[in-house]
Design a protein around this nucleic acid. Sequence first.
DNA 1: CTGTTAGCGCGTTCAG
DNA 2: CTGAACGCGCTAACAG
Lengths: 344, 344
Amino acid sequence: MVTIKDVARIAGVSIATVSRTLAEPEKVSEKTREKVMKAVEQCGYVTNTLARNFRRRRSNTVVVLVPDISNLFFANIIQGIEGVAHQNQYRILLGDTQQIPERERAYADLVSQRQADGVICLGRNIPFTYRKGRKTLDPDWPPFAMACEYHGEIPVPTVCIDNIGASQEAVQHLLDLGHTRIAFINGPADSPLCDDRLQGYRRAMKRAKAPLNSSWLTSGDFTLASGYACTQDLLALSQRPTALFCANDEMAIGAMQACRDAGLSLPGDMSIIGFDDIAFAAYTHPRLSTVHQPRNRIGEQVMQLMLKMLKEGGAGETRLVLPHELVLRESTAPPGLVIPGRYG
Amino acid sequence: MVTIKDVARIAGVSIATVSRTLAEPEKVSEKTREKVMKAVEQCGYVTNTLARNFRRRRSNTVVVLVPDISNLFFANIIQGIEGVAHQNQYRILLGDTQQIPERERAYADLVSQRQADGVICLGRNIPFTYRKGRKTLDPDWPPFAMACEYHGEIPVPTVCIDNIGASQEAVQHLLDLGHTRIAFINGPADSPLCDDRLQGYRRAMKRAKAPLNSSWLTSGDFTLASGYACTQDLLALSQRPTALFCANDEMAIGAMQACRDAGLSLPGDMSIIGFDDIAFAAYTHPRLSTVHQPRNRIGEQVMQLMLKMLKEGGAGETRLVLPHELVLRESTAPPGLVIPGRYG
DNA sequence: CTGTTAGCGCGTTCAG
DNA sequence: CTGAACGCGCTAACAG
């Protein structure tokens, strides 16, 4: 292996000069710079970043904890994170946690082991221990930020959208179309984000004086299959809903399939609205109305937040709320509407 | 920061003993082991893996180059890779290259910088320089493996499926149903994998003595939108095909939408078959027939391959071909078939 | 502007 | 079985 010493020898300078030339070329005379660069090329020297990181006591790496990378929603967020990271000479260590605490911990521990400088968490579990009831950020934690999800008690720096508002708008849209029997397929109950979406649903329903029927509240796990299963349950109800709000697009697409399999026509017999606006939403039949989230920007912003924390040391207390947008396509219509010859 | 020195001081032993206790506990007397472990807990010592890696001259990290992480197909492969990596104390550095050579190089360079020990490439571009016409693996390359894609000339260790065979089977299925006017929406032309799929298509058509019409050969970029656009072109042809084979499911789903928008009924007016069997394929309308690839296993196997190369040093020459499977759902039917009242 | 020196935290000899 | 000592490759002080 060719090291900085070899370069120094060949160029006839000290290793410190080589180091400087590479890190801060402007602080070196043009003549020596040329000598050094020539020597570098001649022997094919490449900086041993591992050694540099060790010396500088940081890794220029950020761990990203993803609950499930096969969920499309996260992919775009990761893309945003990765883009900003790359621009700033940071690397992304990917942790697909599958919500398994052992894995969450294992990845978070990489920071104490100096393999990473900070942790970005896309799921809802905080991978560090904290005293129940604690209301402030633990100063012992490494730079830490969340995206999409947030923590109920601790002011973790977070980038997200206004889930209550977005959810309320989605339901309001169904109400505006004339629906009152509106069911909600939410995500896992232990998620603050889902709490908020539920709250938005409740607000809209209450404000419209629409009936709140507890059997219309179901929850899946954000997968296609769970959307399908929940919808089957809803369709078996004697008081069948006429509209369906799903906490993500996957479940909405699962719901569409369940409706079709039950012989319902869409959107005539059932209006469905999703959440996220993944690419597939514009390619369903009928095209899925949904709430758009700026996924790339969420990722970019949370990485920017992380960079700021890394640079300035210590945790910020930002809570960045990015704008969402109701995207109306074809899957929502007034109740009982029949579009002749259009949708099966 | 608490280092191994602190532990040694507290336990009243030398740092060498602490190091040994942590790495090879069986080589230390039980008494000292207890002393050391107690000291470790007492002061909350965590091994500085960065320092260890530096010393051991390896990072226990593998770079994974992904052309586009927002393509669902890759997500499952990454999951497979990550699972095996995690089990073996390896980390995954994620490189979303977007096929940009600069990024591919930047990530591959992490190996020469000792930030990573090997590179797994899911795309088709090799991120190292090689002499055109070279037929052997360059001994200067770091441990390197590909999944899904492969290289035409150089025997890079690869895990994939039999794309020629799989493609041929898919087309054969359409032929068996009675189709002869079968169009093909392929992926990018410069991809060996797509070459193979085209070859499979050609073989099946030739064997069946079906007409090969060059205007039925189109290529997209694996996105929903490109599937849609290609299909629009195909539908505008005077010699319109009755069946469509798409090189991935996304394009097939785009194709379905284009057909519906053109007023065709599915599968009556157009049979469509995809490739990959992503989760959404079972939730389209009609459900998409496709070729299943064992994505998780591909990822697992390629990581196993990488581990083997890392352990034994030097590159293997394995080419692992995993089994695929034709999955027949609802999107393929005999030409002109009308299923009354079923599909819009 | 450049060179000398002193480590970063750990693993690994080699004596004892 | 244990400890002293060295050095991995690099950067950061400081002195010149």
